[in-house]
Amino acid sequence: MKKLFAVVMFLILTLSSSSAMAAYPEKSLTAICPWGAGGGTDSCLRAFCQALEKQLGQTVIVDNKTGAGGVTGHEAIADAEPDGYTFGMVTFEFVTYHALEVSDYKSYLNYDPLCRLNADPAGITVNKAWAEKNGIKNLKDFIEYCKKHPGEVRMGGSSANSVWHIAGGYFMNVAGVELKMVTYPDGAASAVQAAAQGVDIEGVTVSLAEARSFIESGNLICLGLMAEERINNEVFGKIPTCKEQGINAFYATWRGLGLPNGVDASIRTKLADACRAAVKDADFIKYMTNAGLGIAYLDSAEFKAFLEQQEEKDVPAAMKAAGIEL
């Protein structure tokens, strides 16, 4: 039995080592997802990996390393073997960990940013019945109302310290108003439902995709989108941006890919090129459009600069305004 086992092991070892000289990639890759299977980030990564497989000619296995509010998975990316066979998806929460003292790693220092894939702007979405009652028709009315009633308008973010919670703080800074941010640990969907009920909160600061069903049904109305341009599709096309209404608010959640530091340059280039090509894959684009996710590609250098700007400037200020104590 033991002998047989040794022989089999030897065969396997020789088989796998004989091709070690071959060009990258010569075995399957692992993509770490810091969020649970079936969620928005996971589905996005899985769709992307299918496109990436076509480029690399190898299978890419999605590995959901969840827990501790995403910290576990993000740290696992930084701690992975830098052989180019393990990369991971990084999300917005990533730039808040160091400030919140839940991780020692900084996004732009301890990781090698590969590219950004997607960005979804936040919107100021409120209960329609409430808005009509108070004569709020656009963002200006809303800001005026908030100035008259400081701290009284209750807005739902998603869970504590999450992207949408901080979005509320960002808006307060830019518009110079005071809102009461209410957290929904179960996620954005329950916040949106609460806003549609209009009992506990008056509105939400989440992305349009999250609030879509109630915007369509007319329970909620989006007053302003925190993006440069309107979204180009029939459902959201009518929604004005904040910029159009004189408020320069730009805030979005985003998803990107990261590598551990120290990956060989030639391997890194190969992977980055494959990613760039995969973003243009027709199936991937179709998936993103259906899911209501916007593709917003940034290459490695741009992404790194973006992360630094977020982690050091934009996000800490917004967190402070949202009432998150650091």
Partner: peptide
Amino acid sequence: LTVNIPMGMLQPLRDFVDK
């Protein structure tokens, strides 16, 4: 289920199965 489980010394088995 494409769930990756640590294989330690048997890691080559995974590469073998991939092949």
